[in-house]
């Protein structure tokens, strides 16, 4: 379809593509410190994309998504360290375990709606964390470090391993981004966008709200599990408190998506970038950094419920990542 593109949209897409290219050449350009931060950024981006899909489109406002990150971490440890399966396969299996455990979690959580669902997801996440703390083979309550052979399988020296983990995180983030984009462009996706805008109205034109919510819940679980496995490779250990961290894997993620813009693909990306920029500059201020994030997210909700991306989007002719469908041009 040929349409004159507005210069702002072209500029925005250029920034997006430049960012992707930068990520693709990062190992040859940046030092290990930056690579490590970028790995963490990519993992957080996956979590943000998934929370946005659930809360922004399917109206499943979960505060328990750290459960699947932790499950991924523990499953990865089990496969890689205990069963001694090669790390790449162990990562994939961790994603599958997260998907499998999403089924019983969904059976509990989906009996509830809205506020009760949010609390339900939290309770289920706590439950998984408590169970993890009881597994003595996984270090019980204090956790355990990844054994050296697992690390060696990724690379002989730490520097190589940093790069390998970065690539894994990049592949995961790219897969999460592009597959979620394709999902939103599909016939399911147009139903999700309708749900985002008016849930009862979407149901009235035939969008199966229950099935759409279930699909999104099951869609996010393996990605969260894979992210948990990769986060474990970066942190080099598992423990109930750190692997199931509600602050790192849910609260920050909610801040990021809310600040960046809920219910769009660009919003979570923008919010996660902003989070890391703020963290790099403000981490010296300790707790103030968190209070600023909290204040910022409240301010954004009050000014524009669709976040910073909502503010920018008003000045653009269309989305940077096009999810829209057009009729015959007149």
């Amino acid at each position: 379809m040929l349409r004159s593109q507005s210069p702002r949209v072209v500029a925005g897409r250029a920034v997006l593509v430049a960012g992707m290219l930068m990520l693709a050449v990062a190992p040859w350009v940046f030092g290990l410190g930056t690579i490590s931060v970028l790995t963490e950024f990519l993992t957080m981006l996956v979590l943000a994309l998934m929370w946005n899909l659930l809360a922004g489109y399917a109206d499943v406002v979960t505060v328990g998504q750290h459960a699947f990150v932790g499950i991924g971490a523990y499953a990865f440890y089990g496969f890689a360290a205990l069963a001694q399966i090669r790390p790449p396969a162990a990562i994939l299996l961790a994603g599958l375990v997260a998907l499998a455990l999403a089924l019983p979690a969904m059976a509990i959580v989906f009996r509830l709606r809205a506020m009760y669902l949010a609390i339900g997801t939290w309770v289920v996440a706590e439950l998984f964390m408590l169970v993890a703390g009881k597994l003595s083979a996984f270090g019980g309550g204090s956790g355990v470090s990844l054994p050296l052979p697992v690390l060696r399988a990724l690379g002989a020296r730490p520097a190589e391993r940093f790069i390998v983990v970065y690539w894994l995180a990049l592949v995961l983030a790219a897969t999460a981004f592009f597959s979620t984009w394709l999902l939103l462009r599909s016939r399911v996706g147009i139903g999700l966008m309708a749900m985002r805008d008016n849930e009862e109205g979407a149901g009235a034109v035939g969008v199966d709200l229950v099935r759409a919510r279930m699909l999104c819940f099951l869609w996010t679980a393996p990605f969260l599990g894979l992210a948990g496995a990769i986060a474990t490779l970066q942190k080099l250990r598992i423990s109930p408190a750190a692997s199931f961290s509600i602050i790192d894997y849910t609260v920050f993620v909610i801040f990021n998506v809310v600040i960046g813009g809920v219910g769009s693909l660009e919003g979570p990306v923008l919010g996660t970038i902003l989070f890391f920029v703020l963290r790099e500059y403000l981490s010296d201020f300790g707790t103030w950094h968190l209070m600023l994030l909290g204040a910022l997210s409240i301010a954004v909700i009050l000014i524009e419920p669709r976040g910073l991306w909502g503010l920018i989007r008003r000045r653009l002719a269309r989305d940077l990542v096009p999810v829209s469908h057009h009729g015959s041009r007149l």
Partner: peptide, 24 residues
């Protein structure tokens, strides 16, 4: 109850695709 952030065409497309079980 419009789907306020979607185009007029997409509003009707959702109904056509989901309501009459059609492909895009």
């Amino acid at each position: 109850r419009p789907f306020a952030h979607m185009s007029v065409f997409e509003n009707v497309l959702v109904a056509a695709v989901h309501g009459s079980r059609a492909s895009l």
